[in-house]
Design a binder for these strands. Structure first.
Length: 808
RNA sequence: GCGGAUGUGGCGGAAUUGGCAGACGCGCCGGACUUAGAAUCCGGUUCUUCGGAGUGCAGGUUCAAGUCCUGUCAUCCGCACCA
């Protein structure tokens, strides 16, 4: 006879039962809890055990809240627009909708293996016209509010995806999706004015219960800086150049200026003798790739022949051009203080420009071998001399403003969002170009603008969408004047659908609004959002921006979508190619299939092991054999409940103590989301319980029931089965989370370690409430002859330790 | 270059936030059961020259340090000419 519990039968039985009678009742008047997973892209290759981690964690929290009497919204859906389905279409001619449908079917089957309490009636799919109707509707609102606009500018272009990229998708000059080096291409594109929200996106971060790391990444990306704009007149002309600086305190030390090669004033100020050289440099910079401009740190530059005038002291400063100055940040022009800026120092050394020190450590000038970038005492700075540079930094912007040659300003690194894509498998941008009326949004009652069928999905080299070749779709009538007009052929980026999907879940069948006011009011904002760190800037920033916009137009009643964020770590495994640790992926050959694990150990064991593997916020290495421990534990607890299910005896004091402590520990560890210690807690307390029961000749019912309920969020099937085996007819999830009685957790006697000079020499058992003198006396007795010398000090930490300090 | 995280047995990792380092589990060793294996159960498992030593390394504060401070090394992650 096998002692293994029959997980296959049990899990099948309860899954069928829960499908019929969901344990999470809807439309109640209970308090709400919205627990959200980042929805997956339904790729053809399906799930691996790494995907389970976040989904199990969020399901544990959801079920835990359920047992606390909440009505829980725990939905799942598919972020299904995107390149893999489209690339597959290019190769095979299969319509992406078909591929997507198949992928969703497959991944949904795998997701169901997790046995999470997802409400499948609320499933969303970003590629469903009923869904993207509202993605388009939001765009139309943005257009109407002047937030969506068209602009021609040099953009990140991925030569491999044949598509433009947003700044957020092209960090380090590399395509976020395919890894190809990004080039610049001058294109006319649709932009979203996210920079208008920069201040709010930054400010509202501070109230969010998010990992500090993510908040920092977002605030760095927004990149707010305080400084001043200062006007430099150009010698012998009536023109001026405005520079932006965060170091107005160093203005007296500005010895030259540098313009970005794209700066519009360059042709106007370049002197005749420098013209050729300047034009050559500007041309070279324009053809230099984005990547080399970022990575070639060697300074290059050219002198324009013109001079600016330092507004403070009238000094003449030569105006140079260099590609280390960015055209689209600040004013595209800088004043250079080589004494106090590394880059300016390097430039000055290379081109032999003067260096004037204006800040010094001790008020004395010194020979600088590198830029002095710390704070210090002002020197060579007229009226500022002797002042602390930090103070000067604060005072100067105001001073500059008073004198009328500049103003205090703020700058952001955040750029507007390049929103259009030249690909097929995305939401069509719902606009019409009319010769008479200009750009006209498609009327809301005509949404969605559905994706037409095309013959070739192939993207073009020219930056034109594959949709442009379908004349019967492109040619339309203007909704405004009824005349001939052409549709916008660009599509939206993948982020469009995911920027608001969390709103749709609460009312996903609504054809009249993106979600009803009542449903939004009831469910939003999200209480806990679980997902990977890779979306720290992209998705999470976009979703916050969308929410703020929708708040501004009155479509939602809150400004921040996600109150609490949890980033689970990745599951890694050694690659079979080079033996190094990598995040699980098909291409590294290190994928472990959850299907296989479920087959061998069951869903409950895999769920518990996913949590046991390590701290949930850190990356962990997958180890196949580790799951054995969890599986053995479940067998052990199964056997324990089975053997005692008909018990009628009362709890001993010890068992009562273990039960109360167990409830306390499991609860507080679960609240802190330290799930790995919850699992070890289960093992630890169960071991104690089994040992105590052996000694007592059995265990009481209440303790067995408590164990079932505690386990229910983690291993729902076995918990439900054991609950029923105790004679209950209702579900374990209809119960309340157990409470604990602190007074019953206390032990009568405690083991106290006895130290001499901080080294443990003995232990002694004393009454828990014994006073210091009693314990010290007992400790000395236990030490006996080991205690020598003069006692200097006696320390007692109640219930923990005695330390006797003795001098020899 | 700047910023952040991490560093504890053969392995994954605990440690009530300054109070007996190594919980819990994997693996391994020994034993029981078995014709045998699997499974299960019981015991052991940081190192040690048995004095002690020990949380990447070197200092410091303290009666007491994995935990606090200073310096340093390594690994990983984010940003990267943002003036």
């Amino acid at each position: 006879m096998s002692t293994r519990y029959n997980f296959k039968e049990i899990e099948k039985k309860w899954r069928a039962e829960w499908e019929k009678n969901p344990v999470n009742p809807t439309n109640t008047d209970k308090p709400k809890y919205y627990c959200l997973d980042m929805f997956p892209y339904p790729s053809g290759s399906g799930l691996h055990v790494g995907h389970w981690r976040g989904y199990v964690l969020s399901d544990v929290v959801s079920r835990y809240k359920l047992l606390h009497g909440y009505e829980v919204l725990h939905p799942m859906g598919w972020d299904a627009f995107g390149l893999p389905a489209e690339n597959y279409a290019i190769k095979t001619g299969t319509h992406p909708a078909e591929t997507t449908k198949k992928s969703i079917e497959n991944i949904k089957r795998q997701v169901k293996e997790i046995s999470a309490i997802y409400d499948w009636d609320r499933e969303v799919n970003t590629t469903d016209p009923k869904y993207y109707k509202w993605t388009q509707w939001i765009f139309v609102q943005m257009f109407k509010h002047g937030l969506a606009y068209e602009k021609e500018m040099p953009l990140n272009w991925c030569p491999s995806c044949k598509c433009v990229l947003a700044n957020e998708e092209a960090t380090n000059g590399v395509c976020d999706r395919c890894g190809a080096q990004v080039t610049k291409k001058n294109l006319r594109q649709w932009m979203l004015g996210i920079t208008k929200y920069a201040e709010r996106l930054l400010n509202d971060l501070k109230d969010l219960d998010w990992p500090e790391k993510v908040k920092k990444m977002q605030s760095d990306w927004i990149g707010k800086s305080y400084g001043a704009e200062v006007d430099f007149k150009i010698k012998d002309t009536d023109k001026k150049i405005t520079v932006y600086t965060t170091r107005p305190d160093t203005l007296y030390g500005a010895t030259f200026m540098v313009l970005a090669p794209e700066h519009a004033i360059i042709p106007e100020i370049t002197t005749a003798d420098k013209k050729d050289e300047v034009e050559k440099y500007v041309y070279a910079a324009s053809t230099k790739s984005n990547v080399s401009r970022m990575t070639d740190k060697e300074k290059t530059g050219v002198f324009t022949g013109a001079y600016g005038i330092n507004p403070l002291n009238g000094a003449l400063v030569p105006i140079w051009i260099s590609d280390y100055v960015l055209a689209d940040y600040g004013t595209g022009a800088i004043m250079c203080v080589p004494a106090h800026d590394d880059r300016d120092f390097e430039f000055a050394k290379k081109f032999d420009l003067p260096i004037i020190q204006v800040i010094s450590k001790d008020g004395r000038e010194e020979e600088l071998t590198q830029a002095y970038t710390e704070a210090g005492i002002m020197i060579n700075s007229g009226e500022l001399n002797g002042m602390n540079s930090e103070e000067a930094k604060v005072k100067m912007p105001e001073y500059v403003e008073e004198k009328g040659f500049g103003k205090k300003t703020v700058n952001y690194k955040l750029r507007d969002w390049v929103f259009s894509r030249q690909r097929y498998w995305g939401e069509p941008i719902p606009l019409v170009h009319c010769e008479k009326c200009g750009i006209v949004p498609v009327p809301e009652d005509q949404l969605p603008v559905e994706l037409p069928n095309v013959e070739s999905y192939q993207p073009t080299e020219t930056g034109e969408s594959p949709l442009a070749s379908i004349d019967e779709w492109v040619n339309t009538t203007c909704p405004c004047c009824g005349g001939p007009a052409k549709r916008e052929t660009n599509t939206m980026p993948q982020w469009a659908g995911s920027s608001w999907y969390f709103l749709r879940y609460c009312d996903n069948h609504n054809d009249n609004e993106l979600a009803s006011k009542e449903a939004l009011e009831k469910w939003l904002p999200v209480d806990l959002y679980v997902g990977g760190i890779e979306h720290a800037v992209l998705h999470l920033l976009y979703a916050r921006f969308y929410t703020k916009f929708l708040y501004d137009i009155g479509a939602v009643g809150f400004e921040e979508p996600f109150k609490r964020l949890f980033n689970q770590g990745m599951i890694c495994k050694k690659s079979e190619y080079d033996g190094k640790l990598y995040k699980m992926s098909k291409s590294m050959g290190n994928v472990v299939s959850p299907d296989e694990m479920v087959e061998r150990y069951g869903c409950d064991s895999l769920r518990m092991y996913e949590l046991f593997i390590g701290p949930p916020e850190l990356d962990s290495e997958w180890d196949d054999s580790g799951i054995d421990g969890v599986f053995r534990y479940l067998n052990k607890i199964w056997k324990f409940v089975d053997e005692n299910k008909d018990s009628t005896i009362a709890a001993t004091k010890e068992i009562e103590q273990i039960r109360n402590k167990m409830v306390y520990e499991i609860t507080s560890r679960l609240e802190a989301l330290t799930m790995n210690t919850v699992v070890s807690g289960f093992m630890e307390f169960s071991n104690k319980l089994i040992a105590a029961a052996k000694e007592a000749g059995g265990v009481d019912r209440q303790t067995l029931e408590t164990v079932c309920i505690l386990l229910a969020p983690f291993t729902p099937h076995i918990a439900e089965e054991m609950w029923h085996s105790l004679g209950h007819g209702d579900s374990v999830f209809a119960q309340s989370w157990p409470s604990y009685d602190e007074s019953k957790m206390k032990e009568d006697s405690v083991e106290v370690a006895v130290q001499i000079n901080g080294k443990v020499k003995a232990t002694v058992s004393v009454a828990a409430d014994a006073d210091k003198d009693t314990v010290i006396a007992a400790a000395k007795e236990a030490l006996g002859a080991k205690l020598t010398g003069n006692i200097v000090k006696e320390i007692y930490v109640p219930g923990r330790i005695v330390n006797i300090v003795a001098k020899q």
